[in-house]
Design a protein around this nucleic acid. Structure first.
Length: 209
DNA sequence: AAAACGGGGGC
DNA sequence: GCCCCAGTTTT
């Protein structure tokens, strides 16, 4: 699989558009998006930010008043607790601003590699490449990488894909993974990349037997 | 390494 | 009604 082929395919089929670059909104929206479909993330995020706009407001809110608006995102109890704690930590320890280093972001509850990288690239324009299950699975199927963990996939992708293409990759591959390159029952027959795909080739060989 | 967290949507 | 889902933390 040639990287240039993949990039041009993704750019033509999944034009990239980011809604907010405000660090606090990016961070909270990304927390809400964990294990949650995009439509439900949007609703939950919109509900929450129409009620509270600042870290201070969320830090002072009652837990149940945070839980209620974010219910559509699922995991709403744990997410509400983490969102309020994140707001309090940001106020107390980071002078009211979302930290802009990977290490500091990882100290926030509910923030792992993927979420921290989303904040770095979408809010601060840094050279980060968030890797989730879709990116991990698809990169291996296409033969871009051969790795066991998302962390290894991230390192390999960054060495193979030019920096200027890193930002849209995650969102594009997630969308591609949802409708075509699914975890199970992948729609290989209608996939625009099937001629170049190792996974597709192996599936066909297996079917032959 | 596996479990737990969860409402919403596909089937 | 059953199963899965833009992760992270805890056991």
């Amino acid at each position: 699989m040639k990287v240039s082929k993949l990039v041009s395919f993704l750019n033509s089929k999944y034009p990239f558009k980011i809604s907010s670059r405000e660090p606090f909104k990016v961070l909270i929206s990304t927390i809400l998006s964990q294990r949650t479909r995009d439509e439900n993330t949007e609703i939950a995020s919109s509900n929450l930010f129409s009620k509270y706009t600042t870290p201070q407001a969320i830090a002072d809110a009652r837990l149940e008043d945070i839980e209620s608006p974010i219910k559509p995102a699922g995991f709403y109890r744990v997410k509400a607790r983490r969102i309020r704690e994140i707001s309090r930590i940001i106020l107390r320890r980071f002078n009211g601003r979302v930290p802009s280093s990977f290490e500091e972001l990882l100290t926030l509850p509910g923030v792992g590699r993927k979420t921290a990288n989303c904040v770095l690239v979408f809010a601060y324009g840094k050279d980060a490449l968030p890797v989730d299950t879709h990116v991990h699975r698809i990169s291996n199927r296409l033969g871009l990488v051969s790795s066991r963990t998302p962390h290894q996939t991230e390192a390999k992708l960054k060495s193979v894909i030019p920096k200027r293409h890193w930002k849209p990759i995650n969102a594009q591959l997630v969308q591609f993974g949802r409708e075509i390159c699914r975890p199970i029952n992948p729609q290989c027959s209608i996939c625009g990349l099937n001629a170049l795909c190792q996974f597709r080739k192996k599936r066909l060989q297996i079917k032959q037997k």
